[in-house]
Simulated assay, not measured.
Amino acid sequence: MDLHYLTVILLGIVEGLTEFLPVSSTGHLILASELLGYDASTWAMFNVVIQLGAILAVVVLYWRTFWAVALGLLRKEPASWRFLRNLLIAFLPSAVIGLALHDFIETLLGAPKVVAWALIIGGVAILLIERMVKENRFHGIADIPMARVVGIGFIQCISMIPGVSRSGATIMGALALGVERRTAAEFSFFLAIPTMLGASTLELLKKGDQITSATVGWGSIGLGFLVSFIVALLVIRWFVGLVSRHGFAPFAWYRIVAGAAALLWLTMR
């Protein structure tokens, strides 16, 4: 197989596997660029846009939820309006701060050691939060109070540091604020839709001309999108079932081991 398309498929697999797990898809893509030796700047927009494939997987898997909410909005049901309100409010901090700090965030994307340290520190944080949090008072997205939603939205902004993990930050933030595990995970899935749509739109507006380049064109982006979509479909249901039974500790230990291995490799190479 052509090396270019092998890279496309591998990156699509990495994105689909890691977008909704608390292990940082962006961090893994950055480390993959170091490991595979390709020019990360050339593939930067590709890495952002293929995230939409993983986002589409959420829409497909939870279409009944979105349909029920849409019908509820038409019928003016309070729970549906609270569901929509909570998603929009949680999204706003990342939209504002992301726009303000976009250039600074882009400089961090070229710092693989930042990713390694963020993986380690994030893993330790997950273990601590899992041990400390005992009370889960909120068992539905529409039931989360507005003040808690605002807190989750600001906590999500920590994930602008590559390696922190958007899903990890929102899930752990929700747990710490009293949301039960399954609801925290699903809130993270749903919140990814406006967040990643916004990030992809911004990237397209800033670097849309690069999409026609010979290196990473529409064909490559389409293939990466498809691969990330299929892999994310398989991962999401498995992930929800796992955390409902066993919590997030397995992912914390993976982060610590992967981060330490990456840091060792980056230091010694």
Rank of each mutant, 00 (worst) to 15 (best):
R181T: 07
G173P: 04
F189Q: 11
L108F: 01
W43D: 00
V14A: 13
S24E: 07
A214G: 11
R166E: 11
I105Y: 00
H139W: 15
V257W: 00
L233S: 09
D143W: 04
T212A: 14
A147E: 12
T107F: 06
G163H: 02
F229N: 14
L73R: 07
G247E: 03
K76N: 15
G259V: 04
S188H: 01
G12D: 07
R237G: 05
A70C: 11
T201R: 08
M1W: 02
V164Y: 02
A111S: 10
P162L: 14
A258T: 14
E15P: 12
V235D: 02
T215Q: 13
L101S: 10
I152H: 04
T65A: 07
Y5W: 15
D209V: 13
S213Y: 06
L84T: 10
L108I: 08
L52G: 02
E135N: 12
M172H: 03
R166F: 07
E180L: 04
S80M: 10
H28E: 13
T42Q: 13
G198K: 08
F189H: 09
L191P: 05
I89F: 00
A260E: 04
V216K: 10
S228A: 15
R255L: 11
L21G: 06
G198N: 08
N47M: 06
V216Y: 12
H102Y: 13
L202D: 01
L197I: 15
I221K: 08
V164P: 07
G241A: 08
L177E: 02
G259R: 09
R269H: 12
V49G: 00
L84S: 06
F190M: 10
A199V: 08
G27L: 03
I155H: 04
A176H: 05
S94L: 03
A68Y: 12
F91R: 14
F229P: 14
F229V: 14
T201F: 13
G178Y: 03
Y5K: 07
P162H: 04
G151Y: 00
M146R: 13
H28W: 01
V114E: 03
S188P: 02
L73N: 12
S80L: 08
I9W: 01
V60L: 10
L223R: 08
R131F: 13
T18G: 10
I55W: 00
G163R: 06
F154T: 14
V231G: 11
S167I: 13
L204D: 02
G168A: 10
F91N: 09
R75C: 08
P162K: 06
K207N: 15
A169C: 09
E135Q: 11
E106V: 07
M1I: 10
M146T: 15
E15M: 11
I221V: 15
V23A: 12
G110V: 05
V149A: 05
V150H: 01
I97D: 05
Q156M: 10
P194Q: 04
A174T: 10
A147T: 15
L73H: 06
S165F: 05
V58R: 04
E180A: 09
V179Y: 01
G53N: 04
L263D: 00
G241P: 09
A40G: 05
F187G: 08
M172Y: 07
G241L: 06
